[in-house]
Nucleic acid binder design. Structure first.
Lengths: 163, 163
DNA sequence: TAAAGATCGTTCGGGTCCGAACTATCTGAG
DNA sequence: CTCAGATAGTTCGGACCCGAACGATCTTTA
């Protein structure tokens, strides 16, 4: 299988290639595997659950946030979804065009825009989210149930340290 | 601070909003925090280390893979960087235009393309990578040195489970 | 109560990002 | 030897992605 390296091969190549450079290899291993894992999980979910509804990852997360909070302000959605307000603006336009969300100008504060799911958007999430959750279960199936809260906690601390 | 929720608030809102839906909340917490952490770390690095050299995240990863392996085939880079070959093609064109990499047609197999860093690309990585590693150290500073290998191992298992 | 400043969402330009369709090349069965 | 099939990288269309610049709106200050 030419041109294919296992995780172990990659990490040992890294170690020899960068030997004597005074680097923190532990930190490197954590972040490298963090991105690999997030990417693998995201790609998997996009190709299985999300593709059927023709939704991108970000579009789904935006729907999810608005669904969970009943109605959400855009900067809140952007922050939870981890995208810039510029990106969110475009995604909302797409979702609005497909009839899944509605934008509403703030009445008290004319600068604000709140986002609500339409009936169609709610139906979609009600059907989609259980399937999505099944995928989440698949992603963590390599961890024991004791390890899962540990993993969540570690990841929370990484997020906090980065802000 | 209107429109801002803490992680705890979000998770408890999720719990009440989705109560009685027979979902795996442990798995949900792991994946949600996985994406949050990866996103936070990526944004942090893009804005600090990478912005100075006007590099995107993916462009940096591509350079990194080619640098570590001395010279790499495109499908290998795409796989390690976690992007499709279509995306890689565009990124390589950008990097080639900026003089950081060179494409070389395979001599034995005319379909293959191998990628090598130019002298300029090597200089860039030699300067940039130690700074990048300092950022990686920052990202994991909330974890003890005993926890870091545990974290890397857990993330590796998530990656494996997803394939 | 104006003018200065802060904050919000949108727009713009350029760079990813992907699946699908495409061209070029190699491989195998007959 | 040939040509169907597999494989590699590119192109294309459409969606995301960001920082910067922008207009609209609220808030603060004098």
């Amino acid at each position: 299988m030419p041109g294919q390296h296992t995780l172990d091969e990659t990490e040992s190549q890294v170690a020899t290639r960068l030997a004597g450079m005074n680097l923190d290899f532990e930190a490197m291993a954590v972040t490298a595997n963090l991105f690999r894992a997030a990417n693998a999980a995201r790609n998997h979910m996009e190709r299985t659950v999300l593709a059927k509804s023709n939704l991108t990852w970000t579009a789904f997360v935006v729907l999810w946030v608005a669904w969970i909070w009943e109605s959400a302000e855009t900067r809140e959605i952007a922050s939870e979804a981890g995208v810039s307000k510029a990106t969110l603006s475009g995604v909302l336009t797409t979702l609005e065009g497909r009839g899944f969300v509605e934008r509403k100008r703030g009445e008290k504060d004319g600068r604000l825009v709140t986002v609500e799911l339409t009936a169609s958007g709610k139906r979609l999430m009600k059907k989609l989210f259980p399937e999505f959750n099944k995928s989440e279960r698949h992603v963590v199936r390599g961890l024991t149930s004791a390890e899962q809260p540990v993993a969540a906690d570690i990841l929370r601390r990484i997020t906090q340290a980065t802000n």
